[in-house]
């Protein structure tokens, strides 16, 4: 009587053309994940957002991207870790972050602006002595997107940040799509090397294959209190891409999850 292993080898050999290694379990790499702090999203992501990889939170305005990112940062900063927020549109609200539990002392905020840092104007009357020449960079205006990408690159290369949010939520998709794939690949490599969770807030996915997780966020319904106060909002999160999830036979997980966020203290007072 053939043994079980012999039977397995025989079946695999027979099905080799259609299903390579059909009965051998696929080796699984355990990826470290950090919880987002929202149980519904954590269940969807098998524990949380991956550490040392790029995660994209995509969706239009009012789709809950920022709330989700802040909830994630709250957990990381409350553990004593250091995080950074690269704000391409200068839209970060410190009050909202504090209300979500983000420890602001552990957060480095880079506010990009439309023009480069202001230089002092060369005073007239000193013709022989011009300002010190520092290269061509001074003459070239920096766009917000360019600044954000350079800042992200610097922070990723510096290391030591547990999470880094690249906020391109207000960047037009036609501009974000022009970011070279090589840039995202470099970000992915640097995030992996420094064990940094890079969160990209955007209206559409930009990182393509460099992203480990893509979450598509969308607004579901707002909740009111006595029809007079906006009290909370329910959002839907759909997993658009999850690179490290093994294909497991069995009942499939629901492709989307819903979660809700309440208004901050200001609105509570109104209620």
């Amino acid at each position: 009587m053939p043994s079980a292993s012999a039977l397995r080898i025989q079946i695999e050999h027979t099905l080799e053309r259609h299903f390579p290694a059909a009965l051998t379990p696929v080796p699984r790499t355990i990826r470290e994940a950090a919880p987002t702090g929202i149980p519904e999203v954590d269940r969807l992501l098998d524990g949380g957002l991956p550490v040392g990889a790029i995660s994209e939170l995509t969706g239009p305005e009012s789709s809950g991207r920022t709330s989700l990112a802040l909830a994630f940062l709250a957990g990381r900063t409350q553990e004593g870790r250091v995080c950074a927020w690269v704000d391409a549109g200068d839209t970060f609200d410190a009050e909202s972050a504090a209300a979500n539990g983000v420890n602001l002392k552990h957060l480095l905020w880079v506010r990009c602006q439309s023009r480069g840092p202001q230089r002092r104007v060369f005073e007239a009357g000193v013709e022989s002595a011009g300002p010190i020449a520092c290269g061509k960079e001074n003459a070239k205006p920096w766009t917000r997107l360019d600044q954000a990408l350079r800042a992200t690159d610097l922070l990723l290369q510096a290391g030591g940040f547990s999470a880094l949010v690249l906020d391109l939520g207000s960047t037009a998709p036609e501009h974000g799509c022009r970011i070279p794939l090589a840039t995202w690949f470099r970000f992915r490599q640097a995030a992996d090397r420094t064990r940094c969770s890079l969160l990209v807030l955007a209206q559409e996915p930009f990182a393509q294959s460099s992203a480990a997780v893509v979450l598509e966020c969308s607004p579901l319904r707002p909740e009111t209190h006595n029809q007079t106060v906006l009290s909370s909002s329910t959002y839907q999160v759909r997993s658009g891409r999850q690179r490290f999830t093994p294909s497991i036979a069995g009942p499939r997980k629901p492709p989307a999850s819903t979660w809700s966020a309440t208004c901050a203290g200001q609105c509570e007072d109104r209620a």
């Binding site: 909370s232 909002s233 309440t262």
Partner: peptide
């Protein structure tokens, strides 16, 4: 629970 964040 998480709070609704503002983008200013």
């Amino acid at each position: 629970p998480p709070r609704m964040a503002l983008r200013r």
